[in-house]
Computed example of a mutant assay.
Amino acid sequence: MQEVIIERPTPHVAVVRLNRPEARNALGQALRAQLAAHFLALGQDDGVRCIVLTGGEQVFAAGADLRALADSGPIEVLLLNNQRMWQAIAACPKPVIAAVNGHALGGGCELAMHADIIVAGEGAKFGQPEIRVGIMPGAGGTQRLVRAVGKFKAMRMLLTGQPVSGREAFDMGLASEVVADERVQARALELAAEIAAMPPLAAAQIKEVLLAGQDAPLEAALMLERKAFQLLLASEDKQEGMRAFLDKRAAVFKGA
């Protein structure tokens, strides 16, 4: 059975769906490898302008596969080079929307935080419970979480292992939107379609500059922004967008 399913529901939108329901989408090695391969391919696919990452309507991802991890030693885990699999997602040039229903715990929460936008259901549960089994997050859970919600809220989640609801995640800055559980998938697809209709070169530059600049000194980050802005002035999409605005019609962007 494929542990990751790719769907193309609308033009220029791809859905990456975790498909390991018997293990609540636990992130085993095979699933991680498939995720990395798909994100690498979709990142290079000119026909894709936005990606929705989801586990479905019941659970996003319940974390690492503890059965496999329980008997693993440090060198064994080191040799897996799992950071390369996570990097394939983190470095994806296309905007990524995580549609989170149900549990997003441990590696599942870390996976959601690799996205650019998170749409959470009211009944979602975000958490980093690693401390409860004697370990700590190892795929960005301490670093991405503190950047999203600040030190004090991150410390509470990390040191207690207690999850937060979709509503709490939104209030603390861990989710972009919170909607009724039954609306999560549809809302993520609506957002994806809206982004896919935008000029893809501009979307890619916005993502690249925001991520590169968020931890850089302000002056360096502003320089990156200026250079990207100037570069986009040479695009055909800039000409189309401004012409369409002046003509009072919908623009058709080609990514050129």
Results as ranks from 00 to 15, higher is better:
Val16Leu: 01
Met157Asp: 00
Ala154Gly: 05
Ala37Cys: 01
Cys92Ile: 10
Val96Pro: 02
His38Ile: 08
His114Val: 07
Pro137Cys: 08
Ala180Gln: 13
Thr10Pro: 00
Ala216Gln: 15
Glu240Asn: 00
Gly73Ile: 06
Ala112Ile: 14
Leu27Cys: 04
Pro129His: 00
Gly166Glu: 12
Gln230Arg: 15
Val184Ser: 09
Arg183Tyr: 00
Ala30Val: 09
Ser72Ile: 09
Ala37Leu: 13
Pro200Ser: 05
Met157Lys: 03
Val178Cys: 14
Gly161His: 12
Ala256Cys: 05
Leu233Gly: 07
Ala30Ser: 13
Leu232Ser: 00
Gln214Arg: 14
Ala70Gly: 06
Ala212Pro: 08
Val179Glu: 13
Val149Lys: 03
Val52Thr: 12
Asp247Met: 14
Gln34Met: 03
Leu145Pro: 07
Leu40Thr: 05
Leu218Asp: 05
Val252Met: 10
Ala104Cys: 02
Met172Thr: 06
Cys109Phe: 09
Phe60Tyr: 09
Ala139Gln: 07
Asp71Phe: 01
Pro9Thr: 11
Ile195Tyr: 06
Ala120Leu: 09
Asp237Lys: 01
Ala212Trp: 08
Glu208Gln: 14
Ile118Asp: 02
Asn82Met: 13
Arg183Gly: 00
Leu27Asn: 06
Cys50Lys: 00
Leu211Trp: 10
Ile118Gly: 02
Ala36Thr: 02
Leu246Val: 12
Asp181His: 08
Met198Asp: 10
Leu189Ser: 03
Phe152Ser: 08
Leu31Asp: 07
Leu111Lys: 02
Gly138Tyr: 09
Ala250Asp: 04
Val179Leu: 11
Glu3Pro: 03
Val16Glu: 02
Gly161Gln: 13
Ala216Glu: 14
His38Ala: 12
Ala180Arg: 11
Ile117Leu: 15
Leu222Arg: 15
Arg249Pro: 05
